[in-house]
């Protein structure tokens, strides 16, 4: 094995380690939804290459309203689906689309675009 091969392999393994750490090992911190005067827990979610924020922390038993704003035209993100709450909404570009649901049980509920490329999580406490 020549020195250049050793360098390539070491760098390669390093990159693999980085990918594993970057995509799977780091846990994202959640954003707590704000409580409005109407009794809703509201949070804006930007849809652009992903959901920002993608982890939203809410309290159980209070209605939640997530306002999605899609600022991209890729057709992948046209729709957002909440399988845990049986809700879905199509997101026209540039429009604010509210998705409302009532989390009853604490737990983690995923939401994603229809194809599952973008993912987010609602953590109910």
């Amino acid at each position: 094995m020549t020195w250049d091969k050793i360098v390539v392999d070491v760098v390669g393994l390093g990159l693999i380690g980085f990918i594993v750490w970057f995509f799977w090992l780091v846990k994202a911190k959640g954003v707590k939804a704000a409580l409005t005067s109407g009794g809703y827990q509201e949070q804006m979610v930007l849809v652009k290459g992903g959901y920002t924020p993608d982890v939203i922390v809410v309290e159980a038993g209070k209605p939640v309203r997530l306002n999605f704003v899609r600022q991209e035209s890729a057709s992948c993100s046209e729709m957002v689906v909440f399988p845990g709450f049986g809700k879905s909404a199509s997101l026209p570009e540039g429009e604010t689309v509210p998705v409302e649901f009532l989390p009853k049980e604490p737990g983690e509920y995923e939401f994603a675009c229809q194809m599952g490329m973008f993912r987010g999580k609602v953590i109910v406490e």
């Binding site: 970057f22 290459g49 992903g50 992948c76």
Partner: peptide, 10 residues
């Protein structure tokens, strides 16, 4: 954009 969300796609 995906990398900023620690997600990878097509």
């Amino acid at each position: 954009q995906g990398l900023r969300h620690r997600s990878a796609n097509m």
